[in-house]
Design a protein around this nucleic acid. Structure first.
Length: 493
RNA sequence: CGGGAGGUAGUUCAGCCCGGUAGAAUACGUGGUUUGGGACCACGGGGUCGCAGGUUCGAAUCCUGUCCUCCCGACCA
């Protein structure tokens, strides 16, 4: 046997690590808290990125790029923002190394090369961007500014986990500037919807749209909206955020514009982001004990064709020819496909390998199949096998990919819906949390103190105040004080 | 940052207690037989034992320091 995967039941954390490592998405690196994203994982990210990028452009945004370094003084300008990130910033203090006079071949930081002002490696780019927007904006005619950036950011985390929390990660951050509050609020919600649509339609990941509580919101925001997803161990994971920043950054960086009435006003702002953390969500929402299961619409590879080789060279030639023809047909139909003729590994090895990597569809083609003019088609999500006529194969695969995408979403949504439990008394709250997990829909009196007390007692936090939820009078799960709406609690990543 | 585990071949690990020629499996290379769920035979290449000191005739093994990784916890808009 080759690579073994720890089962979810044995050790959920280890199962997750096994899927990421053995599924070929990423490796640990020599650098603390940082990972290497391998080609399989990076292609997955590229597919996610490309789709999001299309959606951003469809909604009127353009990409730009701002510096990796943020002068420390910029970060200080917005008070809440500064406090929120201070503890996890990497700081550049020098700009030169030199040979160590005391040790041959060693380098030391040149004490002569200290920076006048330290540079912070961006944990996010609001500061540097708003400093720039100040120069871009004079009149309402300069607005809105709808800019997105694809970048890496650094947050010096104490404890890291592959994709879920790494010191450096890849993301996109949208930063928009508007003339009116309403326009900025609308933008915030619009981008939340883009994330939700992307998660559900492309990642097959059902999400709850909601508003963060005061204590969970972004440092520097007026309101933080989020999409929350549920993992198979019953823990929640924030899959994207969209912030209404009010005029906080405009005031901090003195960004004003002249309105139509020739009056100076502060600009209204939003920011929104989604990161490689989404890959972690994908792994934990869909994977099984045999490996990754990737949704066809973003899978790095949709179909793999595996020959069952024959010692009869005539039969072997036929297999190769047929496989090449299938590759051609599928590619013409816009399906990504690979014919794995590598002779080092036998078919069984390849079956296991591509299952581990989560490739949605596998086609096995051998001499016996050719005699019957069929191929064995196996779908990764259910492992169901079918013999399909070679003449109908391309069409079948196209439909199958579509079906897998839908089935993955339905399965995840069924699980998610079964794990939203309405709870109205405290004992049951703790019991559900420990025994069943998932989201608990319960009343909350709206105070930070109660939220904190519940977190202290149970480790569960308010994941969000769901949007469009029905108004319903009730009593706070902990204090019994009146409440008008249920919120979602969960233990979270 | 606290607790635990660990660092020896590409990988997973044994060897360490009790110091004395660095091992296994797997992967890799060549040749052959194979190929419908992780094949087999033969031969072969591959390791400054995380790093730095110390003890010793001699250190993977004992001592000191240090770096790094994983797991649990604290922390984490």
């Amino acid at each position: 046997m080759g690579k073994e995967i720890t089962t979810r039941e044995q050790d959920y954390s280890q199962w997750y690590n096994d899927l990421v490592l053995k599924g070929g998405l990423a490796d640990y690196s020599a650098v603390r808290g940082c990972m290497v994203i391998k080609p399989h994982g990076y292609t997955l990210w590229e597919n996610m990125r490309d789709q999001l990028d299309r959606m951003f452009k469809e909604t009127g945004h353009q990409n730009a790029y701002f510096p990796l370094f943020v002068p420390k003084s910029f970060l200080e300008k917005e008070e809440g923002h500064a406090e929120g990130f201070a503890k996890e910033c990497a700081v550049v203090t020098h700009y030169r190394l030199k040979a160590d006079p005391a040790a041959n071949g060693k380098l030391i930081v040149d004490p002569e090369a200290k920076l006048e002002e330290e540079l912070i490696i961006r944990p996010t780019s609001e500061a540097i961007i708003w400093n720039t927007y100040k120069d871009w904006i004079q009149s309402y005619r300069d607005l809105p500014i709808l800019v997105n950036q694809w970048a890496n950011v650094v947050r010096w985390e104490m404890r890291t986990r592959l994709f879920l929390r790494t010191a450096e990660f890849l993301w996109q951050e949208g930063h928009t500037a508007h003339a009116t509050k309403q326009e900025a609020v609308d933008e915030t919600i619009k981008m939340l919807d883009v994330y939700a649509t992307f998660a559900e339609e492309y990642m097959a990941l059902p999400v709850v749209r909601g508003l963060k509580t005061e204590s969970e919101k972004f440092a520097g925001a007026e309101d933080t909206y989020c999409i929350e997803a549920l993992m198979q161990d019953g823990k929640a994971l924030q899959a994207g955020t969209s912030h209404f920043l009010g005029q906080n950054f405009a005031k901090a960086f003195d960004v004003k514009f002249l309105n139509k009435e020739n009056q100076l006003e502060y600009v209204w702002a939003t920011s929104w982001g989604a990161s490689t953390r989404l890959i972690g969500a994908l792994v934990m929402a869909h994977g099984d004990d045999d490996g990754l299961i990737l949704p066809p619409r973003i899978a790095p590879l949709q179909v793999v064709i595996i020959p069952i080789s024959s010692k009869d060279s005539v039969a072997q030639t036929k297999i190769n020819e047929k496989a090449q023809q299938l590759v051609k047909e599928l590619k013409a139909a816009n399906v990504s496909v690979k014919y794995d003729e590598n002779d080092n590994n036998r078919p069984g090895w390849k079956f296991a390998e591509y299952e581990m990597k989560g490739i949605p569809v596998r086609i096995a083609l051998g001499a016996r199949d050719l005699e019957k003019n069929v191929a064995e088609v196996v779908r990764r999500d259910t492992k169901e096998k079918q013999n399909i006529s070679l003449d109908a194969l391309t069409n079948h695969v196209i439909n199958l990919l579509d079906d897998i995408q839908k089935n993955m979403y339905t399965k995840a949504k069924t699980y998610r819906d079964e794990h939203i439990t309405k709870v109205d008394d405290w004992n049951k709250f703790e019991k559900i949390l420990d025994e069943k997990g998932g989201f608990i829909s319960a009343h909350w009196d709206g105070t930070r103190e109660t939220e904190e007390a519940i977190k202290e007692k149970t480790k569960a936090t308010i994941r969000c105040i769901p949007l469009n939820a029905e108004q319903e009078n009730g009593k706070c799960i902990l204090t019994g004080k009146p409440s008008k709406q249920r919120v979602l609690f969960a233990r979270a990543y």
